[in-house]
């Protein structure tokens, strides 16, 4: 069973906007409210909207189960890798070794109220991105698994 044409058209129209907003929340996690988990949940909501609007056979041509599984595993691996990378430079596990270093995301910020810069905060944006990708894949694959267990002729 699938939803009516109005629901399907609305889902198609809203999907890219929800995706862009979720990725914005993930990428600006160290400047504005939100972060990896919140942004990933917003993106997964957009994926769930498409999953609910279509039937299982149509969804699997748009959203691949393998891709979602890969996103989840790669996100967790990047997150743990960012924690272990601190060991390689001699800092403790999960310490912020990129902050104030001048490298990637290594710019310092002045103290006090300021608008902020995207190129700051060390490993925090990398971890935000990793957790966001992981939550995206994880929550989407849960909804996809639940849809896959519906019998084909049911309702």
């Amino acid at each position: 069973m699938r939803m009516s044409k109005i629901v399907r058209t609305g889902a198609n129209l809203l999907y890219p906007f929800i995706l862009i907003f979720g990725l914005y929340v993930i990428m600006h996690g160290h400047l504005t409210p939100g972060g990896g988990f919140q942004g990933g949940a917003v993106v997964a909501t957009g994926v769930a909207l498409v999953i609910v609007a279509y039937s299982f056979e149509e969804v699997t041509s748009m959203i691949k189960k393998v891709g979602m599984k890969a996103r989840e595993s790669i996100g967790l691996l990047i997150f743990i890798g960012a924690g272990i990378g601190a060991l390689a430079v001699g800092a403790p596990f999960f310490s912020n070794f990129l902050a104030h270093s001048g490298l990637l995301f290594g710019q310092s910020i002045p103290s006090g109220p300021n608008p902020g810069d995207l190129n700051t905060a060390g490993v925090i944006p990398i971890m935000n991105l990793a957790v966001g990708i992981e939550v995206w894949g994880g929550l989407a694959i849960i909804v996809l698994y639940m849809l896959s267990s519906i019998p084909k002729e049911g309702s």
Binding site: G29, H30, L31, T32, P33, G35, G36, F94, S95, N96, A99, H100, Q107, S108, I109, S111, N114, G116, T120, A121, G122, V123, I124, M127, N128
Partner: peptide, 15 residues
């Protein structure tokens, strides 16, 4: 000053 992030909540959660 320590985490170089403007959002204190995120620097607590991730750092």
């Amino acid at each position: 000053a320590q985490a170089a992030a403007n959002n204190i909540v995120t620097s607590v959660v991730f750092d």
